[in-house]
Design a protein around this nucleic acid. Sequence first.
DNA 1: TAATAATCGAGACGGTACGTCGCGTCTTCTG
DNA 2: CAGAAGACGCGACGTACCGTCTCGATTATTA
Lengths: 216, 216, 216, 216
Amino acid sequence: MRVQAQVEGRDRPVREAPEPRRGRPRSAAAERAILDAVVGLLESGEPLAGLSIERIARTAGVGKATIYRRWSGKEELFVDVLRDMEPPEPAVSGTAGLDDLRLLLESLRRRGLAQRSSVLLYNVFAQMKSHPKLWAEYHRNVIAPRRVAMLGAVQRAVDAGELRADLDVGLMDDLFLGPMLVRTIHRPDAPLPEDLADRIVQVLVEGLAPRPAAGA
Amino acid sequence: MRVQAQVEGRDRPVREAPEPRRGRPRSAAAERAILDAVVGLLESGEPLAGLSIERIARTAGVGKATIYRRWSGKEELFVDVLRDMEPPEPAVSGTAGLDDLRLLLESLRRRGLAQRSSVLLYNVFAQMKSHPKLWAEYHRNVIAPRRVAMLGAVQRAVDAGELRADLDVGLMDDLFLGPMLVRTIHRPDAPLPEDLADRIVQVLVEGLAPRPAAGA
Amino acid sequence: MRVQAQVEGRDRPVREAPEPRRGRPRSAAAERAILDAVVGLLESGEPLAGLSIERIARTAGVGKATIYRRWSGKEELFVDVLRDMEPPEPAVSGTAGLDDLRLLLESLRRRGLAQRSSVLLYNVFAQMKSHPKLWAEYHRNVIAPRRVAMLGAVQRAVDAGELRADLDVGLMDDLFLGPMLVRTIHRPDAPLPEDLADRIVQVLVEGLAPRPAAGA
Amino acid sequence: MRVQAQVEGRDRPVREAPEPRRGRPRSAAAERAILDAVVGLLESGEPLAGLSIERIARTAGVGKATIYRRWSGKEELFVDVLRDMEPPEPAVSGTAGLDDLRLLLESLRRRGLAQRSSVLLYNVFAQMKSHPKLWAEYHRNVIAPRRVAMLGAVQRAVDAGELRADLDVGLMDDLFLGPMLVRTIHRPDAPLPEDLADRIVQVLVEGLAPRPAAGA
DNA sequence: TAATAATCGAGACGGTACGTCGCGTCTTCTG
DNA sequence: CAGAAGACGCGACGTACCGTCTCGATTATTA
């Protein structure tokens, strides 16, 4: 339905002739049942790779054709499932530079905590990289916007004189994001303490060089 | 590698139950043929998901049982394929602090480049996160040692007065590693320029705060 | 026959739960193709032991599952193949005693001739005894009814005064049937001349004792 | 060993040079273990078709090659197993006609009783017809000699004037043997009373025609 | 006494078939 | 039309055996 909406949405100019689609209309209940079945199975610990269309249909009490009528395959279905569960927006400030960065990192930290508590998110994310279409979709919908937001915040901080202007903003962005990603991908058991976002920003700004006698 | 271990009996101390392995020994040739078949198929453009044990066996001119005798399934096999291709050792210096960090990061950079040029490495790595046991294996064999090496380098840099002593070495380590991971996982299209390792180290040491008129 | 039963619903009394069999109905064409494939392979000289489900499916242009959906294994399939080829009814007279016996024996004789000309019938029958359930099925469907018919004919002959009344009808029945069975099982090369049925009946009636000078 | 003996026995003229067969001699213990394993498995209810060389070897604690060194396959092995268990000789009279027939039939009756009490005999016999080589061997070793013996007895009875001389001895033989076979093959639950052999002979001799006023 | 040679248990080898499961399509009947 | 149901041809799964082939270790005869 979602997919449907995208496809149909394109060629309809403004809002004219809802194109009645003769015959019995698609059942919204069936659609919900399918999505709920996927989520349910994932939450019950099933690895995403272990989900077959057949099983999903059985669990949802739905014919296989009803699934194929809406999505062309497992991946397309999962894209929709995933979209259902992403946190709505990472955070939207507007002007202040470093503060925005702190907010964005804090949002990531919370998301990391949530991911750990949710078998679902973890599995979906883990599985994703092996499904190019799924990953591309995720990248387009989640990763890219987030990077745009962070790059904007970095740029604003540079403009506001909070960060050096002689450095590649891309690299700076990577530096801010890096520790969060490391703890998500490589060290999923590492702590994500409350002050992590603040500390990252502070340490990056101050630099790692030994302080020259500090208060002297 | 597996065969290696059997034949040479490494890491067994001196004389502890040689365990003669009765019956006809496993064929090293078959093992090679299997691994080569996987690599060959992947290099010929096959998507990793399209590799069935049946096809691998056919390509290698080998019975299916000969594969299952060595690996319990597709994923275990892929882990070994991957292990075969991992760069042998990240880098082994010993004493100098920041220089070692630069070397380790440079090794990671090269690895990232290699991974991009190899459909295999990329896909296998991606695949792995969805199989907890395999990921654990990979973590134990590749990620963890690398982190130990980097933590050691960071600590030596602290001891040598090259880095601040008042910060969590774990966090510092994440900061060094972060940009490489970001460009590997989140931005696989981002450049990995030759001086990236140096720049990361330099920027982190200097800090992101605007320079107070340089020599002033 | 199976299909027969489903389609025509024989032996269901009048109107007892039509049980609509939801979903796409089994393909009668596939069923025919399977049975024909078995018969074809056997007729082309394949030993029955050399027939694998896989080959039958390949020959019939059918998926293996389509076979397993109908029969639980090779043997059940063969039973149906056999049932297809059994002569429809041994013979159905009704009143006359010895004449009925002659007809029944003649039917057996013809069956024996057919069996010899058909690798199939011979092998399937042989195979059957080693599968108790199948043998039971065969016994119930083929052997037992035939015995009932013969016992009836013997009894009628006794009642009509054509046979002695002081003997066990079971034993008499065995005596009539015996020679046919001997030549089927133990001496498959023995002839089955046209007048065999008549001669058996005649000799049994007359007895084997030397004739006391005939007309004396 | 048995097979071996046959093969070697041919080209050795009389009894010269036992041809020492250099190298380690075959182990009689292994041979026994193999045969015992087959018998044991059959007695424990295994269908003959369910016996694999692999399982026999495992049960006997013997390598597969040790079996293949002696027999070329399952059938040849079974022939030897079977030969081990057939009752030694059906019966050997010599002169008297009808009495010999009674003895031979009585021997068959006892064998039938034994067969029923032995899962082994029953299964082996049942299975046999589907294995042409096995059946041929059985026919040659068991059925044919028995028929020769019975035919001889019938002929002697004819010569002695106990049976009509105007009938085909083959048919007469089938008539004597028939009831026993019917009760073995078609009606394995039918009784085999003690006087069965006597009754068969008597009834056959007297004939089934109603007695003409008997004592009149 | 040493060499030679066939045996032993064990188990790996390339294959074939097993019976099951899932794929994506199709065909039936019911709403 | 869409719905559930389920059959369809196909292909892969992981297992069991097939009959052959190494292994190292016995156990005989022959030199």
